[in-house]
């Protein structure tokens, strides 16, 4: 474990917590893409499937973190699609998730480390995570604005994988550890946030709201 991965995971936890708080406190999921949250839930379940296959005692933080990620993302989907369904902006959350899931699944079968079920599920989860934020970014571009709290959520969510890139550089240099698939997908994922990062740093930090077109 290094400082970059630690802060990456903390940033990821913060993102999940910020979104849950926003929906719970405002009792509304306006401005939140339910599809992105569904895709994240799929990512966690397919990536941590080993938790279900051979359940081991919660003997380390990693198992606890995996369970937190899975339960928090499923609970977020429950809030969006059931509890606060009336506030779900389905009209603007219109990006076709199939256009993300199918290519990720196909690519996972073509480019993977080992052609076995668990490894392909892991690879699918990595590819899907890279593009899972697109419906959320698409929704913001359609509504033309993002609530400040949603911007903070996106900043934390984007920072998590950006910090992981620093972690991979660190691990390459000090542990000569390389996980090419995760690195390439992580770089693509972070690049998708660049436009948002620019808007966040030039606007939200100064107390302005993000309004598109910028």
């Amino acid at each position: 474990m290094n400082i970059f991965r630690l802060f990456g995971d903390l940033s990821h936890l913060a993102a999940i917590a910020i979104l849950l708080l926003k929906i719970w406190k405002t009792r509304s999921c306006a401005g939140v893409s339910g599809k992105t949250q569904l895709l994240f839930a799929v990512c966690f379940i397919t990536r941590y499937i080993d938790l279900f296959l051979h359940f081991v005692s919660l003997y380390n933080t990693e198992k606890v973190m995996k369970l937190i990620y899975i339960s928090a993302s499923v609970f977020t989907c429950y809030l969006i699609f059931f509890k606060f369904k009336a506030t779900y902006d389905g009209n603007h959350d219109s990006m076709r998730a199939e256009f993300l899931i199918v290519p990720a699944a196909g690519l996972a079968c073509l480019i993977n480390t080992k052609f076995d079920a668990i490894e392909i599920l892991w690879t699918f989860s990595i590819y899907l995570e890279a593009v899972a934020i697109l419906p959320q970014l698409f929704l913001i571009s359609k509504t033309g604005e993002a609530e400040t709290i949603t911007s903070h959520y996106l900043f934390a969510q984007g920072s998590y994988r950006a910090l992981y890139i620093l972690n991979w550089i660190y691990r390459y240099h000090y542990e000569s550890h390389v996980d090419t698939i995760a690195i390439v997908a992580g770089v693509v994922q972070t690049i998708l946030y660049c436009d948002f990062f620019y808007l966040y740093i030039t606007k939200v930090v100064k107390g302005q709201k993000i309004v598109l077109p910028a």
Binding site: R5, D9, H12, E62, M65, K66, Y69, T113, K114, D116, I118, E119, W122, Y164, N167, D179, A182
Partner: peptide
């Protein structure tokens, strides 16, 4: 050794 397919990151 066979690169363990174990991915040790979240």
């Amino acid at each position: 050794s066979q690169k363990s397919a174990e991915h040790d990151e979240l």
